[in-house]
Amino acid sequence: MQEMRVRLAKLLYERSYREGEFTLTSGRKSDFYFDGKQTALHPEGAFLIGHLFNHLLKDNPSVTAVGGLTLGADPLVTATSVISYQLGRPLPAFIVRKNPKGHGTNQYLEGLSNLQTGKPVAMLEDVVTTGGSLLTACERVKEAGFEIGMLCTVLDREEGGNEAIKAAGYELHSLFRRSELLALAGS
């Protein structure tokens, strides 16, 4: 797994990590930007992310599905679901909309027919800054009748999101913290 982590760190640094002056979704200013989709949509990146998230999830056998807030989590949950099947522990994927569908069932979640209501699910995120988006997605999933079994992210920016998630009663599992990503990418 360590070899996969190092390779993913290098891909993330090359494809998803940019230094400069940026305004984040939260409105905060930052000296770097992380666009995880650039790596998650790359064939090798998706393969590595899927394997590494499954490695995190193996310690929580109660998790029955993986999901996350669209658009950042879409390739993450797909990669993780596909690899889970390959590894013999199939985890269906679902997507949480930012706004309800607006027609038909008017729901926030897509993929419900593959899930068992009341069961624990894992929420995946590409990057955590304040934790707000991930916590909002968790609330929508709980309102739909599921338990939150685990929260996972590709990158914890180390800017307070982990603390906000802990304050909400959850534990964040990160593939990388920013400091780890930079150290491994440089190795």
Rank of each mutant, 00 (worst) to 15 (best):
T64D: 06
S81N: 06
G68V: 07
L135Y: 08
A122F: 06
P75M: 02
S84T: 13
A137W: 01
D74V: 05
G132C: 03
M123E: 09
D126C: 07
L76D: 12
T80H: 00
L87G: 00
S84E: 15
S113L: 10
P75D: 11
S84A: 14
L134A: 02
A93K: 14
V128C: 04
L124F: 11
T130A: 08
A93T: 01
S81M: 14
V128E: 11
I83D: 07
T136K: 15
L115W: 12
L115C: 12
L87N: 00
V63S: 04
N99S: 10
P90M: 09
G102D: 12
L71H: 11
S62V: 07
K119M: 08
A73P: 09
P92S: 03
R97N: 14
V141Q: 05
G72N: 11
G131N: 07
R140N: 08
T136V: 15
Y85S: 13
D74Y: 15
L115E: 07
L124A: 02
N114C: 11
L109R: 00
L135F: 01
K98V: 01
R97P: 10
G104K: 09
S81E: 08
V141A: 06
D126I: 01
R89H: 05
T129L: 14
N106V: 04
L124Q: 03
R140Q: 14
G104I: 02
L71S: 09
V128I: 13
K101R: 09
L69F: 03
V63L: 10
G67K: 05
G67T: 01
Q86D: 13
A73C: 06
A73G: 04
G132F: 04
E125D: 12
P100E: 07
V96M: 02
G72D: 08
T130K: 12
L134G: 00
L134K: 06
N99E: 13
E139Q: 13
N114W: 06
A122W: 02
S133H: 14
E110F: 07
T70N: 14
N114A: 15
K101G: 08
E139H: 02
A93V: 02
N106E: 14
K101C: 04
V141H: 01
G104M: 05
S133W: 04
V82G: 04
E139S: 08
L115D: 05
L134Q: 03
V77S: 05
G111A: 08
G132Y: 12
M123F: 00
D126S: 09
T64Q: 06
T80D: 03
P100T: 10
E125W: 09
T136R: 09
R140H: 13
A65I: 00
N99T: 12
Q86N: 12
P90W: 13
T129G: 06
N99A: 15
A137K: 02
L124E: 13
E139G: 06
Y85P: 02
P100D: 14
T117N: 07
R89P: 02
T129N: 05
I83V: 14
G118F: 07
A73H: 14
K101H: 10
L115H: 11
E125S: 10
G118R: 12
K101L: 01
H103Y: 13
Y108L: 06
T70I: 11
G68M: 12
L134C: 01
V77I: 05
F94W: 10
V82R: 07
G88I: 05
D74T: 01
D74I: 03
L76Y: 11
L135M: 07
V82I: 14
D74G: 04
L71E: 08
Y85I: 13
G68C: 04
T105N: 14
V128S: 03
